[in-house]
Design a protein around this nucleic acid. Structure first.
Lengths: 124, 124
DNA sequence: ATAATGCGTAACTATACGGTTACATGAAGT
DNA sequence: ACTTCATGTAACCGTATAGTTACGCATTAT
């Protein structure tokens, strides 16, 4: 059980996620760890470019590096994403509220229609 | 009912969220819409700096501007955050998996202990 | 008409990215 | 020892960002 409770910088996490290539790297790592070179092959940019992306991902603790022989395996670390998830929490209420409002609106429309079909207007 | 189904750029959303000041602006707007000047007063940086932050937030569709007289009210638009939320979905399985594994581990430890206390080892 | 208010934009600076090519370094084969 | 492989780093370029101060432009007040 990993003990050290690291604090993740939201700034580093979000800016790491801001780049499409880096998000794609993470997507790739969802299917398992891979050595740097193989990751690089999956992208149209040069290997050093990927190397720099990996550095940023490392800095944001979104991946972990593990050296084995002359390979460096990269593995997804979802921890900082948990932080993003809980940051989002405060905002979920908004689209939930919107949904609730939409639901209310639709129901009100329905109410109105059925009231009109009965030739009766409901105003409360 | 807002009709146009806009596509939000994950890139713009994440890079907008990468800046602490901008996240703070969003936090502020959670409590209701505010004119640009008042938003600026809440921060130690200059008003034009905030103006530029608001431009980026606008570009990312995270806020909406509404002119009223000489004021420009800014209002939170949570839509792009929904996209972030669903992007996260693919990753939640990871920490859920970790939690499941942790739960299994804890339960196994508990099992083992109670088995030991009975002088009996349970191996399934 | 003139002044004051609210707010964006321009111009400028410093810093960070994202990409490239060239080079450095360490492990593994021969 | 020499070569090859895997990978990071350095140096460089162009562009975006975050901040500043100075300025421009509506809108409202006098």
């Amino acid at each position: 059980m990993r003990n050290r409770s690291v604090t993740y910088s939201a700034e580093q996490t979000f800016s790491a996620l801001a780049d499409p290539t880096r998000r794609a790297v993470l997507d790739l790592l969802r299917h398992g760890r891979q050595p740097a070179g193989q990751i690089a092959q999956a992208f149209p940019v040069s290997r050093p470019a990927i190397s720099k992306h990996l550095r940023l991902l490392r800095r944001a603790h979104l991946v972990e590096e593990r050296r084995e022989g002359r390979h460096r395996f990269y593995q997804l670390n979802p921890e900082p994403l948990k932080a993003v998830d809980s940051w989002l929490e405060e905002y979920r209420v908004f689209w939930r509220a919107n949904l609730a409002r939409l639901k209310a609106f639709v129901e009100a429309e329905h109410e109105k229609e059925s009231a009109e079909s009965k030739g009766k207007v409901h105003t409360s």
